[in-house]
Simulated scan of single mutants.
Amino acid sequence: MPNIPTLKPRMQLFLSLLLGALLSACVPIGQSAPQQTIPLGELLLDDTFTLQKGWEARESDWAYMDVINEGYRMWLTRNVYIYGLYRESFTDTVMEASTLLMSDNPKTIYGLRCRASEGNPANGYYFMLSADGAFSIRYGAGNAIEPLVKWQNHSAIYTDGRINTIRIICAGDYLALYVNNQFVADVTDDRYSRGFFGAALALPEATTLDNPADVVFDNVRVWAVGD
């Protein structure tokens, strides 16, 4: 799988960053059980996108993100990485969203974010899936995204047009990813303790308007971490 280089967006419509070694060779996953069990606390957000409630909305001739038809839709044709954030900062959270690919571009990369920094929103954590059935947990640092868990294949990720439900846990230094109610991977990292959550989309190479990376996020729920 190729890397995704930086392209600075026109008029700063989108924040993008260098994805040096974003995609490395996929290998089978080995871990089968989470290191921690994180209880759910107070429900902080339950968003079915009937209204625009604080999500970023941006548009250019090569990318788009906004609430439309009761979903948060993102599409992209350039080989960059974009993200849309919910502008409220949190510390320890569990986030879940339903995701549906709207195109059959097999190179689409999409997922959820937590703890995006207020000063530089490119920083923070990324929990990403690929349209061909792989995943990675990563962190952004300056002009690069580095792996905490490298790209690996996992059978929990649907690649046949069905909805993938993604759940991410950001609790203290503990980060975990679940897909379709199955544990996928976890890791510990203490670089970021607070920030915005959101959605992300990327392409490893440019494409055409009739075959973009195109995904809808829906049924977003965010909980505080319980006691």
Rank of each mutant, 00 (worst) to 15 (best):
G198M: 05
A122S: 13
A200Y: 03
A176Y: 00
Y174E: 09
N120Y: 07
L175W: 00
A25M: 07
A57I: 03
D160V: 00
T37P: 00
M1G: 14
S98E: 14
T93G: 04
A57R: 11
N219K: 09
W75C: 08
N105E: 14
T208F: 06
R115S: 09
N105I: 12
E88T: 08
M1A: 15
P121N: 14
Q31T: 11
T37H: 09
V27D: 09
V222H: 03
G195W: 02
G124M: 08
R10C: 03
A224G: 13
Y110N: 10
V149W: 00
P28V: 06
A141H: 06
H154C: 10
Q12C: 00
L101C: 09
L101G: 05
N180C: 07
E146S: 12
L22V: 08
L209N: 12
I166M: 09
V216W: 04
I145M: 07
D46I: 02
A156H: 05
G195I: 05
T188W: 01
G124S: 10
M1D: 12
L101R: 13
T207C: 10
S103P: 07
D227R: 01
P2Y: 01
K53G: 10
C26Q: 12
I145H: 01
I82R: 04
N123E: 15
G161T: 00
N69P: 00
E118G: 10
A200C: 14
R194Y: 05
A185W: 03
R221W: 01
S193A: 14
L85R: 08
I169F: 10
S89V: 14
S155P: 09
G84F: 01
A156W: 02
I82N: 02
Y110Q: 10
C26P: 13
